[in-house]
Simulated assay, not measured.
Amino acid sequence: MNISLLHRLTPLAAVTLLVLSALPALAGTPLKVGYLPVTGHAKFFIAQDKGFFAAEGLDVELIQFHNSADGLSAIRAGQLDVGAFGTTAPLVHIAKGAEIQVIGGIMGQDAALITTAANADKVRKVTDLKGKKVATVRLASGDAVLRGALNQAGIDWKTEVEIFELKNPPAVIEAVKSGQVDAGLVWGPHDLRAEEQGLKVVIRSDELSPGHPCCRLTVSNASATDHPETWKHFLRAILKAEKFASENRPETVAIITKYLKLDAALIEKAYYSPHLDQSSDPNVKGVEEFWSTMQKSGFVESNKAIAPYINTEIYRLALFELTREEPKEAFWAKLWEIFNARDRS
């Protein structure tokens, strides 16, 4: 145990560290993990394919969902142990009293507003959406970012924009192509697939809210309290996958291709896009800002603080252990810098 690090932790963090460090991985612990069929969720695929989950004593079953709303409902119903279903969805459920918490992240940013080529010059900024019809996916992160941007621009998204919540990004693409809506919000790799079909990306979510979080790893409060060692090992596997993806580009693309069944060149462009944040930390500051935007725009009606619903200690311990095992590894040092900037008060 690194005593100097232990002294720097809060009392709660120190206790968590001591307890979890003494706990072994539970051999073959079954976990049902929910994911969306998007490039940003590649760390699930890598951790499964490369045996990182198994090495951490986890027997993971990956279960696909097509939108965040359905995925979060499955977590609340006990049908999933963990999932990465945007930032909007868990925060909306927390606002309604759900006993869930964020323990990490899978991706950030990556949403895009698309239009037909004919409409591209008419929609260059959010104020151009006034009086327009816009398709989104229900409870998608980009949806809340867009509504927040409309609110900041002085546009009432409830009355001055017609927003249609569809099932998934392909449905949004079809609505834009057919002219049922003027614009639509999707995420990678569907932005690239939209472009392949002649549509245009006109606004990206990182332009509206730079650095915003997207898919947060969400579990029930009871699971986080009763099985912290399981989630420590889960996050260790996710962090190993993040490191692998940063160092093994061709193999990472090949693994993602197995799961998404898309062209490898498109997958590489999507996953290594400058618009996609691949970090796995909980991102407390980003989630707090996201929550504030949702409150101000009227997306949620809640005055509660969101920080108590973000658990950083399990991620901290996972990263601490990996650093202890490879003390000279520059990748872990970089993740500490990110953690210190985004997750420490």
Rank of each mutant, 00 (worst) to 15 (best):
A22M: 06
I267A: 00
L335Y: 06
W157Y: 07
R124L: 09
I173Q: 02
E326V: 08
A140F: 08
E165T: 14
V172G: 07
P213G: 08
F85M: 07
N303L: 10
G286Y: 02
G198S: 06
F244Q: 06
R216F: 04
L26R: 14
P274E: 03
D277G: 13
D110I: 03
I256D: 03
Q152A: 14
L166H: 04
E61N: 13
D110M: 03
N119M: 12
N303E: 13
A47C: 09
R236A: 11
V137W: 00
P11M: 03
G78V: 06
I94W: 03
T312P: 08
H227N: 15
A341C: 02
F320S: 09
Q152N: 15
I106F: 06
H275E: 07
A22E: 00
S4M: 08
V202R: 00
F320H: 06
Y271E: 04
L23R: 13
E174S: 08
A222W: 12
A254G: 09
G198H: 04
G105Q: 11
A13F: 00
L12D: 08
I46F: 04
E56S: 14
Q109C: 12
G28W: 07
R216M: 11
A270S: 15
K232R: 15
I3M: 03
I103P: 06
P250E: 13
R324Y: 07
T225C: 04
G104S: 09
D59Q: 15
L6R: 04
K232G: 06
V176W: 00
A318W: 09
A305D: 11
T218L: 04
R8Y: 01
Q278A: 06
V134H: 13
D281P: 02
A330F: 09
A25P: 10
R138Q: 11
Q79C: 01
A13L: 10
A118H: 07
H41N: 15
S220Y: 10
I163K: 01
R8W: 00
D277K: 03
